[in-house]
């Protein structure tokens, strides 16, 4: 096995171009499991952890440009105000040890339907910035996932950053896992309310071949939320919204849970998330 540890992105892109089958590693929290368990034996490992720009974030005015390697710990410590949904999701990832190393780039690269970052990125309408020697492109998060552990990236591309709009309203993330810590999502849900554009974004995790949006639920919420007066979300709205989210999911039975349970619990947590996110939208307004 070859091992490269470029210090700059340019070097990394050159290497990825000449070694398109190279497996990128940064935090290592996914890749090393594959290696330790003999599930993958890549000929080349391309270590991105020495490239400092990948582990930085910057304020772009309306958005945050989040380096692919910024660890989850820093996301919830430093960006809880700008990206509350992603911050909440980051707090639920694995353990502190994992959160200290893992970042959004790895989550996207692995493209597991259960990745905790995906629902908030979908809900916020993020764009994934990828680069190769041929240049860079921004991939709409809605176009990014193709199937279980499959994304739209070309073999010579590297995820460099994610451009995430700052919260323009309440955001929430909720995850079902049978343990009170350190669980892979049985299912999860992210919501981002955009009070400025009077719209609602959603993301469903671990209940389909890819992370999913719940478009009908979004439209329902956008038309039923009381944008003018901010009156509370009613139990009926929670129920209807939850039912639409569940309907948008495409879960299966597996060792972590039944499809029926996934649908059921998604309906519950998404309804709750709508209520909570709307409450915090009003709180933000009143401040």
């Amino acid at each position: 096995m070859e091992f490269f540890r470029p210090a700059t992105l340019i070097d990394a892109l050159a290497l990825k171009s000449t070694h398109p089958t190279a497996l990128c590693i940064n935090g290592g929290t996914d890749v090393m499991v594959e290696l330790n368990f003999d599930r993958k034996r890549p000929e080349t490992l391309l270590d991105l952890s020495a490239i400092s720009e990948l582990s930085e974030w910057s304020d772009q005015g309306d958005s945050i440009l989040l380096g692919a390697g910024v660890p989850y710990t820093r996301i919830y410590q430093e960006l809880a105000k700008e990206l509350p949904g992603l911050a909440m999701a980051s707090r639920t990832v694995g353990s502190l040890q994992i959160r200290n190393k893992g970042g959004v780039g790895g989550n996207l690269g692995s493209a597991s339907p259960a990745g905790d970052a995906h629902p908030p990125l979908l809900a916020s309408g993020a764009a994934v910035n990828v680069a190769s020697v041929n240049g860079t492109r921004a991939i709409d998060i809605n176009e990014f996932f193709l199937g279980p552990k499959k994304n739209t990236m070309n073999p010579d591309e590297i995820i460099t950053s994610v451009l995430i709009p700052k919260a323009r309203g309440g955001q929430q993330y909720s995850k079902i896992g049978t343990r009170n810590a350190m669980v892979i999502a049985v299912c999860s849900f992210g919501i981002a309310i955009d009070a400025k554009n009077k719209s609602v974004g959603t993301g469903i995790g671990s209940a389909g071949p890819t992370p999913l949006r719940a478009h009908e639920a979004e439209s329902y919420a956008a038309t039923h939320l009381d944008w003018a007066n901010g009156s509370a979300v009613t139990p009926e709205m929670m129920k209807e919204f939850g039912a639409l989210v569940a309907a948008a999911s495409r879960p299966i039975d597996d060792v972590r849970g039944t499809a029926a349970y996934r649908r059921h619990s998604l309906a519950v947590i998404s309804g709750r998330c709508l209520k909570w996110a709307w409450t915090s939208t009003q709180d933000m307004r009143s401040k």
């Binding site: 707090r91 909720s174 995850k175 079902i176 896992g177 009170n180 810590a181 709750r272």
Partner: peptide
Amino acid sequence: LPGGASNVTHGEG
């Protein structure tokens, strides 16, 4: 609360 940091409930249910 049940679910812990996974943010499942704020007391509901």
